[in-house]
Write a protein that binds this DNA or RNA. Sequence first.
DNA 1: CACACCATGTAAGCGGTTACATGATTCC
DNA 2: GGAATCATGTAACCGCTTACATGGTGTG
Lengths: 177, 177
Amino acid sequence: MARTNTLQYMILGLLTRQQMTGYDIKQIFDKEKAEFWTAPFSQIYPELNRLLESNLIALVKSNDPNTRKKTYQLTSTGKQVFLDWLKKPLDPSVTQLNNDDFVLRLHFLGKDQQGILTKLLKLRSQTLKVEIAQLELELTEVTSHPEQYGRELIIKKELANKKSDELLWHNQISNFS
Amino acid sequence: MARTNTLQYMILGLLTRQQMTGYDIKQIFDKEKAEFWTAPFSQIYPELNRLLESNLIALVKSNDPNTRKKTYQLTSTGKQVFLDWLKKPLDPSVTQLNNDDFVLRLHFLGKDQQGILTKLLKLRSQTLKVEIAQLELELTEVTSHPEQYGRELIIKKELANKKSDELLWHNQISNFS
DNA sequence: CACACCATGTAAGCGGTTACATGATTCC
DNA sequence: GGAATCATGTAACCGCTTACATGGTGTG
C-alpha cells in the first residue's frame, strides 16, 4: 500500500487525538486494522525515533521517574506536516484520489472538519466515476472471452464495489449540504 | 500485496494460456492491471531468469536467428507448481481466504475448472461472512464516538462491499448447481 | 511462581520501486 | 530521419516482514 512513508502520517494522525506511547499506537493499529492499517513494533519504534529526530514529535516529560515508558506528543511542526498531508489531495493539480489514500485520510476526519471531508468525498466520487466507466468497457470486452470467466467475475465484483462506494459518498455529500 | 513471491505464480499463470516473452507479460499486466496486478520490467526479467534456472519454464526455440526475443513456455514441472499454488487454499487446513489471494487465483480460472472455482467461491464466501459479522460489531461501537465519523464511514463502506461480494459469490455458486 | 501482558528495541532478508543503460524495429 | 515502440536487462534504495533479544509489571 505505502509509497512515501505512510506510517509516518498514521502515527502523526493518531497523536493528534492524544499523547501516546509506541505500544499504545500498536494497540490501536491492531484494533482498527481491518479498515486501514497495521504495522509491527519493529517498524513503529524506529519511526518514532526518526520523528523525534526531525522534531515532528516530542517526548512528554513523565512525573514518574522509574518508568521506561516513552510518551510522545505532536510538536507544532508535526501538526502542520500532518495537516499538509491531509489536504494534499485537495491541491488543484491533483485530479484523482485512489482508495488507499482516500481511506487513510478519511480515518482521521471527524464531523468538525466537514469542509475537508466533503472535498475529499467529491474528489473520490469523481475518480470512481472514471474507474467505473473504464471497467464497463473492460466488461464488454471480456464477456467475448469465455475462457477468461474468472477475470469477468473479478471485473463484475470491482464494478459492484465501486458503484456502491460512489453511491455512498454521493449520499454522504447530499446529507451535508 | 504479495508475501511469498506472488509474481512467480502470476507469470506461470499467464504462461498456461500461451507462450510469451517478458515484454508480452508486461503488456498484459498493464492491461489487466486494475483488477489484480502490476509489475515493472526490473522485476519481470530477473524473475523469468530465476524460473528458467529452476526449470519451471523453458525457452522456445526460435526459427528466426536474428531476433533478441526470448519466448518462454511452461515445463511440466511449472504446470504442476502452478496448479499446486492454485489449489492451495482448498487444503483442509486452510479455513479462510483473503481477497488478494482469492482474486489472484480467480483470475486464472475458466468455466472449464468449475470444480475448483466453486470451492474457492464457497471458501471466500465463508470468510466474508465472518468478516461481515466482525464489522457489524465494530460499527455499533464506533457510532458512539462522533469524533470518529470518518472511521464510521470507512466501516460502512467496507461492510457494503463485503455484503455485495458475498451476495455475488452466493449467486454464482447457485448458478452452477 | 508461572504466565500473560507491558514495553522497547535490533538484525537479516526480501519484494517492490525508481532510475539507469542499451540497442533494434516500425511507422509517419 | 525522428519518434514511438519493441526488447532486455542492472543497480540502488526503501519499506515491510520475520525473527531475535531483553526485561519489567500485574494477576491467578
